[in-house]
């Protein structure tokens, strides 16, 4: 069952032209954002569609911190009203096109933050942001040895020596 919560008056923004949504982060910060901005998120859009059938006002509880949520909102605000190919469900698979320049600067964050953003984008179903983060992470491990990849991303090697070296064993995963 949904939980009824109160709204912190401090979250009320100024006048806007679009309908407003209330997003609640995992650290219980209430963030009001225009619906247009978050329309790039398929998850949010589906939630809003569900709202239409009720007369109540709604908030959306999200499982990541306000810091991460604000980064996602910043991304969505920047591309508000823009068509991005990656968000088109009919778009072709990724090619060799480079990461957009603004995205490069936007994602110039530390590793853990980058991983949190991509997880949030994945949760919110923002394909373009997932793609940009994925490229940024792929760029981090591009051309690196296995050991370097483990070190860069902090992954532990859980292979046995036998598993590690044979293509046939790799094939069976």
């Amino acid at each position: 069952m949904p939980t009824i919560v109160s709204v912190d008056d401090s979250t009320v923004p100024g006048e806007g032209s679009s309908r407003l949504l209330l997003l609640v982060s995992s650290d219980n910060k209430h963030i009001v954002v225009e619906e247009d901005i978050m329309s790039r998120s398929r998850f949010i859009s589906k939630q809003v569609e569900g709202f239409e059938a009720t007369s109540q006002r709604h908030a959306i509880l999200l499982p990541f911190s306000s810091f991460v949520l604000n980064k996602v909102i910043e991304y969505c605000s920047h591309y508000r009203g823009y068509y991005l190919l990656e968000d088109d469900p009919d778009a072709a698979p990724p090619g060799r096109s480079p990461v957009r320049e603004w995205d490069q600067e936007f994602l110039d964050v530390d590793r853990n933050m980058l991983l949190r953003i991509i997880k949030a984008a994945h949760y919110l179903e923002i394909k373009s942001l997932v793609g940009s983060c994925a490229r940024a992470i792929a760029d981090m491990i591009r051309g690196k040895t296995t050991e370097e990849m483990r070190e860069i991303l902090g992954v532990e090697n859980d292979f046995t020596p036998e598993e590690e070296h044979s293509p046939s064993s790799k094939c069976t995963g």
């Binding site: 949904p2 939980t3 009824i4 919560v5 109160s6 709204v7 209330l22 609640v24 998850f43 589906k46 939630q47 569900g50 709202f51 009720t54 109540q56 006002r57 709604h58 908030a59 959306i60 509880l61 999200l62 499982p63 949760y123």
Partner: peptide, 10 residues
Amino acid sequence: RPVVVMGASH
């Protein structure tokens, strides 16, 4: 007005 917290339907 009351606010309904959504998000469990992911």
